[in-house]
Design a protein around this nucleic acid. Structure first.
Lengths: 244, 244
DNA sequence: ATTTTTTGATAGCATTACTATCATTTTCAC
DNA sequence: GTGAAAATGATAGTAATGCTATCAAAAAAT
């Protein structure tokens, strides 16, 4: 089981000074993940972070303009990591259906089978993404952020999965929407099972692996159920008669 | 076209004093919606709100403990409003498939065909829900909030849709997960089409109604595609061979 | 008409989200 | 190893935020 000590390429607009290149920078990333997991994004701030590292507030501000940029940086890290894992694990697979199933597994399961980046605890980062990831793009200034390319990695991840979907069935109507839905549905159901169980059918028995398996199964059901289905065209017709 | 001047029942744990019962309270709700839409949830605060109403910061604090409670209050309003609209519009429908299609239409389309509550602009509230609704439950203290019943209305909405799904096909494995996915997918794709178009296949030509139609069509495709499909059991088997 | 409730105005306080300055330490070139 | 340059730490300061408290004025209820 190999371990990679890669530097992931993150959009430079997200930082003032590349945190991957210095010891302090890496500590900032490492402990941001731990601290956000512990106290949540709203309670997290640069003062608390610098107390823990330990460093000074001013020093953290030399790396990141503000908490939001740091947070989006972490999400980009996660998205890039997902892309890399999907690439690595589908390299030698030719059957697109198998590829797709592997990709679904990777979305759900962050147990680092063969990628491991020194200073980021990917399991914990994944927890943060599941709990609070949507905040990265659900806000008033999304267009501005988007203009700086803050979501390029998410789009790439989506498009990678969408491309596999299209490989399985090239005439599928909604590859990108299905891809984004699968990612969001995976995260939502992991979260719901733990915190709002009446919003899902999956059950959290406290065992991570069992819940992951349930989510994978359901994602596969949704994804292949839609892709391999030939009988929708008729059900679309009944569209007119309602809401008179 | 009737207009209802109903008071929606909102969980009393969300407020200190019932805002629906006083003039000032209703102004708080009305202008919260407008102001959050305008400046976004993060920039919104009670000072700015009270300057606009106009009233005083202290007075707003007499109705809501803090901004988060007010925000969740608005979401509960939205959820209750959706429940009421679904009930009202499916009352006389017996065919569960038709019911389901009507429900999907209601999730997407907030044009008030026959419900209208005096002081809340539902179109704008819907915009807020689409953009920032997920923040209501994606945070560290979700379990505490859940303990106070802050998400009961969302669960009710989900379960109402899940129940219709089960009516259409009682052996469907994931009615609740499908229901929550449909709701979140509707909102996400409305948002993506506008702000992150590479995450969806729908196109925003600036026309609300055209986009709504596309989303409705896609939701129907996803929903009925899954429910009316009989051929998944075999595709589930191929689960073992990967990730060796 | 007066009591009770609601609201407005003001003040205040601890925390947050930064920015600026300058001294000190570390890194790097030679 | 020495000196210059860069990175960090320490401290201070400011404007905004998220409240709480107090008291007087206005509105509503009896």
């Amino acid at each position: 089981m190999k371990s990679f000590f890669v530097q992931l390429e993150i959009n430079p607009n997200l930082y003032l000074k590349d945190p991957q290149k210095t010891k302090l920078g890496r500590k900032i990333i490492e402990h941001s993940v731990l601290l956000i997991d512990e106290i949540g994004l709203e309670q997290f701030n640069f003062k608390k972070l610098s107390d823990i590292i330990p460093s000074s507030e001013a020093s953290v501000y030399r790396y990141f303009e503000n908490k939001h940029h740091l947070f989006v940086y972490l999400l980009n890290w996660y998205w890039e990591w997902m892309i890399a894992r999907i690439e690595l694990n589908t390299l030698n697979i030719t059957d697109p259906k198998v590829k797709l199933r592997v990709a679904l597994g990777i979305i759900v399961d962050t147990a680092n089978r063969n990628m491991d980046i020194e200073f980021v605890d990917e399991e914990i980062l994944h927890k943060i993404v599941v709990r609070e990831g949507a905040k990265a793009y659900h806000h008033k200034l999304v267009d501005e952020d988007n203009g700086y390319g803050f979501f390029l990695s998410y789009k790439e991840l989506c498009n990678k999965i969408a491309a596999i979907i299209s490989e399985v069935r090239e005439d599928f109507l909604y590859p990108k929407a299905l891809a984004s839905t699968l990612i969001e549905t995976a995260n939502n159901n992991l979260y719901f099972a733990r915190h709002l169980p009446r919003l899902t059918d999956l059950s959290d028995e406290g065992d991570d692996q069992s819940l992951n398996e349930q989510v994978k199964k359901m994602l596969g059901f949704f994804c292949f159920g839609l892709i391999e289905n030939n009988s929708h065209s008729d059900s679309l017709i009944k569209d007119m008669e309602m809401r008179n």
